[in-house]
Amino acid sequence: MPQPMSRPILSVDGLSKVYEGGFTALDAVSLEIREGEILALLGPNGAGKTTLIGSVCGLIQPSGGRVLVDGHDTLTDYRAARRLIGLVPQEINLEPFEKVISTVRFSRGLFGKRRNEALIERILRQLSLWDKRDSPIRALSGGMKRRVLIAKALAHEPRILFLDEPSAGVDVELRRDMWEVVRNLKRDGVTIILTTHYLEEAEAMADRIGVINKGQILLVEDKDALMKRLGKKELVIELREPVPAVPEALRHYGLRPTGNGHRLVYTYDTHGERTGITRLLADIQAAGLHLCDVETRESTLEEIFVDLVAEERAAP
């Protein structure tokens, strides 16, 4: 997807958080988010995603660093900064006895906006909550409650929306609806930062992907570029006759036999100097094996991500 050139609407500079007790949950995180983009933050449990969001939104007292929201410092000019931000928390935090529509109205009032029933109706309809508007929250299903949280965040017309694991506990169909909602918001010009464990989700929606682990941002890149740069490819070589083992002459290629020796799988980096495919094919011929088919396959984001985190873990 082509990325429109624009200035950062959110800039995080050297943000740190050391929790009471000395645990460093964020270690000088810097990050810039462009207006109108969807950024997916990926990271394992405990990586610091929620802490990062909390520090930007005012839930957590940062230990150091600076956050600017459209030029407004989140500490010294918090009113202007927070007015632009909508937050959908990871946990379902809702008052159980309150009615859906009143809790959404409350959010709008809290952000100092004039009542706008037409807008609230539009939001509730968009999230398929309009029929439930007079139900108390405790009478809703988990997925509906999550959508109430989104409705509350949208009620004050934020320009930046944080979605902390929007699909947690949401079934597959509803997840697709959620993606639709997010895409519509993007179309309306809302900048979206979401965290997710569903890599499929990031792949389906994000313009850019940031990977965070142990309180550090490992990288932030355009999704497509990331796939290109880190995407490993596999070459699957189909043999006419099966081999009992990989021949000695081909050992150094690290081939993986599958399908009872009918196939050999060769893994190579797309960004490597040379792929080694030509030599491999020649060597296979020289070893007296006969190919009947070759096929390539790209690694998924999931595999990329697992590799990245493993790399980081292996590093001293």
């Binding site: 009113r79 927070r82 928390p89 935090n93 809702l94 809290l110 952000f111 509350k152």
Partner: peptide, 18 residues
Amino acid sequence: YFPKFIGTIYELLSAPVS
């Protein structure tokens, strides 16, 4: 205390209010 207990305090903390 109740918003603190059930977590809805997040909204007060993230709102443009003093």
